[in-house]
């Protein structure tokens, strides 16, 4: 099993949903965790519940200043060994009605937020000569999906950014990978019709199904894994639909 004793992990969007599952799992493996989120009440409650080795910090991923505060909080715990760029939003609309505001909002959080998170932690990771950056993309970063224009574009963008970073930062001991969850039951997917999804494993995921991938990429078991894509989707995109 992955052990992360003495390591510090920063999780954006860590207050609920998948982010909270990553926080609990990383903490359970011995890491200190910084829960960074816009949701002050839920984030603080999770930090209280976890107790020792857990800290909440308010984070707006679209703000450089906010990231600087979050990273400073992590450095106070010893550094940043693991960054999980998890914060994300989704919106949808047929292209004629998918307006500039919707596009800008989802790109700002999902793609620019990831970029700003990386910029904020890289100096700390370079100084330590180690680090694992885990960018949460999506199966929508591997395929198209009607109406999800900004979401799909942002998740493809995260996947590409992961690769340019992996190539550039390998020499500094920093690994960068992307995780691509499929249909996961979270607050973000509430209201979507799960019966429309074709999932070979026969069920949608719960957040705990995805934590194994994040722990694997956070730990030393993946020491030679960088620039890659880990799809966790119950086989959703393994098949090519011909019928």
């Amino acid at each position: 099993m992955t052990r992360l004793d003495g390591r510090v992990a920063l999780v954006s969007g860590g207050a609920r949903g998948l982010g909270a599952a990553y926080v609990r799992a990383l903490h359970g493996c011995g890491a200190s965790v910084v829960i960074a989120d816009l949701l002050d009440d839920e984030g603080a409650a999770l930090a209280d519940e976890l107790g020792e080795r857990a800290l909440f910090v308010h984070l707006d991923v679209t703000s450089e200043e906010s990231w600087a505060d979050a990273v400073a909080a992590a450095v106070g715990l010893g550094g940043v060994d693991v960054l999980v760029n998890n914060a994300g939003i989704a919106n949808a609309g047929r292209i004629e009605r998918y307006g500039r505001e919707q596009w800008d909002a989802v790109i700002a959080v999902n793609l620019t937020g990831t970029y700003l998170g990386v910029r904020a932690v890289v100096p700390v990771m370079k100084a330590a000569r180690r680090g694992s950056i885990i960018n949460i993309s999506s199966v929508e970063g591997m395929r198209g999906d009607a109406a999800l224009h900004g979401y799909v574009a942002s998740k493809f963008g995260v996947r590409g950014l992961t690769k340019s970073l992996a190539v550039e930062l390998g020499a500094d001991g920093i690994r960068v990978n992307s995780v691509h969850p499929g249909f996961v039951l979270t607050p973000m997917t509430q209201g979507l019709d799960v019966t429309r999804q074709r999932i070979p494993l026969g069920r949608p995921a719960v957040p705990d199904d995805v934590v194994g991938a994040v722990l694997f990429l956070a730990g030393d078991g993946s020491a030679y894994v960088t620039g890659t894509e880990l799809v966790v989707d119950g086989g959703m995109i393994a098949g090519v639909p011909h019928a």
């Binding site: 992996a166 190539v167 390998g170 499929g182 070979p200 494993l201 995921a205 199904d209 995805v210 194994g212 991938a213 722990l215 694997f216 030393d220 078991g221 993946s222 020491a223 030679y224 894994v225 960088t226 620039g227 890659t228 894509e229 880990l230 799809v231 966790v232 989707d233 119950g234 086989g235 995109i237 393994a238 098949g239």
Partner: peptide
Amino acid sequence: GPAAFLLSDDAAWVTGQTLVIDGGAS
């Protein structure tokens, strides 16, 4: 390490995938 992860229940919702392990080469 990656092989053990994919075989284990930690990857219980991962199927049909190929995980590239190449130090970033590809």
